[in-house]
């Protein structure tokens, strides 16, 4: 681990100003990923600006009915918050399926979004990796690729984003509030993370010094929602594939009025399944339609040597979640 300086930020504006003017500075939230990466020599910040104690630790309803989650809210608190449990069960489920109780107590909302891939080649500084060392190559392609991307990957990178929470937020049409040196801006969560393209070293569209201060959830109840995580062991494992879905049925129950689906474990970002949504909107909630939508979404999937199973697995998981949420699928 390289020696580094540490300071606690007095407020968000000061934190942003400090990090923005020091290229080697990074924000520190719960540290559950960053500190690991520092120990491994993968992250080598000169300065850590601790933002975990800023007063960004509340979950509150805004006047227009949206719910604002402070970036420093621990994952455990967020999962157990009454507003989240009542209106956004998919988010609570996703949070509780991630990591372990101890890690969720430390991990923050902002840090969860900005955690880095667990690709083993990325995490071992003795190996080439385009994400860690641009231009050095991607050994995951042609190597141990079981956990890697099937959608949106590039020649330079096949890593997946590891967050469960972000998948649920993508399905909920959440918005990210960002504070930069020039002021505040907002961004749909689905536009926060990037596909790797030729610049896999950039996980997100954030500029250096920009700080996520909050995540906003849209108003209303999203009770018909669920998160299904498929994983190798029953807890404390990253997703092979995960599905977050929010469904509204028409009043007569015969058709799908609204549907939002996001996939985890398949791409460099939480993958919003827009093709599937398009096919399902207005359609009858049947097994056939679910399967057709899943197939359409995964039509663009490209398997590596070790992860072809993810394509049928993602399709099966999507169908299973939609079946459970609509109470349908037994016929047709």
């Amino acid at each position: 681990m390289r020696p580094f300086d540490y300071q606690q930020a007095p407020d968000a504006t000061a934190a942003v100003a400090t990090v923005a003017r020091r290229p080697g500075a990074m924000f520190l939230g719960g540290g559950t990923n960053l500190v690991d990466l520092m120990k491994l020599g993968v992250a080598t910040p000169e300065l850590l600006v601790d933002v975990s104690r800023l007063p960004l630790d509340t979950v509150a309803e805004l006047p227009d009915g949206r719910v604002r989650i402070g970036a420093a809210v621990p994952n455990s608190d967020l999962a157990a918050h009454p507003l989240i449990l009542q209106r956004y069960p998919v988010l609570s489920q996703a949070l509780l399926s991630g990591a372990s109780g101890q890690l969720r107590n430390l991990a923050t909302t902002g840090g969860n979004l900005l955690q880095r891939t667990r690709c083993p080649y990325f995490q071992d500084a003795s190996l080439p990796c385009n994400k860690r060392e641009p231009g050095s190559g991607c050994p995951a392609r042609g190597g141990y690729s079981r956990n890697h991307a099937i959608l949106g990957a590039s020649d330079s990178c096949v890593a997946v984003h590891p967050s469960d929470m972000a998948v649920a937020l993508a399905a909920l049409d959440a918005t990210v509030v960002i504070l930069g040196p020039g002021g505040e801006r907002t961004l749909p969560l689905t536009e926060l993370h990037r596909l790797p393209g030729a610049e896999p070293e950039r996980d997100t569209v954030l500029a250096h010094g920009e700080l996520v201060t909050a995540v906003d959830l849209p108003p209303g109840s999203h009770r018909r929602s669920a998160y299904r995580k498929v994983r190798d062991r029953a807890s404390f494992a990253f997703a092979l594939v995960s599905v977050a879905a929010v469904v509204e049925l028409a009043d007569d129950g015969g058709t799908i009025a609204g549907v939002r689906i996001a996939l985890g474990g398949v791409a460099h970002k939480p993958w919003r399944a827009e093709r599937a949504e398009e096919l399902l909107r207005g359609a009858q909630p049947t097994e056939t339609n679910f399967g057709r939508a899943a197939a359409a979404e995964l039509d663009a999937a490209v398997a590596l040597a070790g992860n072809a199973f993810k394509i049928p697995l993602a399709a099966n998981a999507m169908v299973a979640v939609l079946r459970d949420l609509t109470g349908r699928g037994g016929n047709g």
């Binding site: 667990r118 083993p120 080649y121 995490q123 071992d124 141990y144 062991r233 029953a234 807890s235």
Partner: peptide, 16 residues
């Protein structure tokens, strides 16, 4: 190299 050389990638059973 054993690429999955930590307990996040080399799984042993969790309590669950």
């Amino acid at each position: 190299l054993v690429v999955n050389h930590d307990l996040a990638d080399y799984h042993i059973p969790a309590n669950a």
